[in-house]
Simulated scan of single mutants.
Amino acid sequence: MGYLNDRILDLGLTVLTTEATRLDICHTEPATYAQATGTYSLGHKAGLSVGAPAARTPSGRKVTVAAFEDGTVTGTSTSSATDAEFWAITDTVNSRLLAAGPLTTAQYMTADNTFRIAAFDIWLAGLDG
């Protein structure tokens, strides 16, 4: 079995803590900054709060993205194919997509409303095998 010091995992996760500035909700999983903040975005929340790296059970390390209730909806779903199904975290200072993943449940969006996100974890595992 191998060994990987927590510091190795923490340094990767610290990028989210120190550089993440915005969370977008998207109808398609983005692979680029432009898709996350423009093409696929249905709304966003600036001033994102991401906690410091911490232990994850049963192994690995994690950061927690804080819950919020004041995201701004900028687009309207036109069918189930355009509901918000993914989140994307970006570094707007350097125009970088940092992380993306699925929402717990798809959400129908209507422009000029607000959206909320429950707190969630982003994690890295240690070595396998």
Rank of each mutant, 00 (worst) to 15 (best):
L124R: 03
L127M: 09
T28A: 03
E29S: 13
L127I: 01
D70K: 09
F68N: 07
V15M: 10
Q35G: 01
A31Y: 11
T82H: 04
L4N: 13
Q107G: 04
L124K: 04
P53F: 02
P58F: 13
A111C: 12
V65H: 10
A100Y: 10
R61M: 00
Y3I: 14
M109G: 02
M109V: 09
S59C: 08
A46P: 11
F86N: 14
N5Q: 14
D70H: 08
Y33N: 02
Y108R: 15
G101P: 06
T82P: 00
T105C: 05
T110L: 14
V50K: 07
G43N: 07
T21V: 03
T110G: 09
L103N: 03
A34R: 12
D128R: 14
T17H: 11
D91G: 03
L9E: 00
Y40W: 02
T64R: 12
D6R: 08
P53Q: 05
D6S: 09
M1L: 14
G38I: 08
A118T: 01
F115C: 01
Y33K: 00
T28P: 03
G47F: 09
A46R: 14
L97P: 02
L42S: 11
W87I: 10
A118F: 05
A54G: 05
A118M: 00
S77M: 05
T105L: 11
T114P: 01
T110H: 08
G126R: 05
Y3A: 07
V50F: 10
Y3V: 12
S77T: 01
G2V: 11
A31T: 15
R96Q: 11
A118V: 04
D91Y: 05
L98C: 00
H44W: 13
E69A: 10
M109A: 12
G47C: 11
A111G: 14
G12D: 07
F120V: 00
G2W: 02
Y3M: 11
T14Y: 10
L97N: 05
S79P: 04
I25L: 00
F86A: 13
T82Y: 00
L4Y: 13
H44R: 09
A99E: 12
G2E: 06
T72Q: 15
P53M: 05
Y33I: 09
R96S: 05
S59I: 10
D24V: 01
I117Y: 04
T74D: 12
H27F: 04
T32P: 03
G12W: 00
V15F: 10
P102S: 13
L48F: 00
A66L: 02
V63Q: 07
I25K: 01
R22K: 12
I89N: 04
D112Y: 09
P53I: 06
G51P: 04
K62M: 08
H27R: 00
W123V: 11
T110I: 13
G75V: 15
T39R: 05
L23F: 00
T105E: 15
T17N: 15
L23S: 06
V93H: 10
D83W: 05
A52L: 13
Y3D: 10
V65K: 10
R22C: 01
L4C: 13
L23W: 06
K62S: 05
G43C: 06
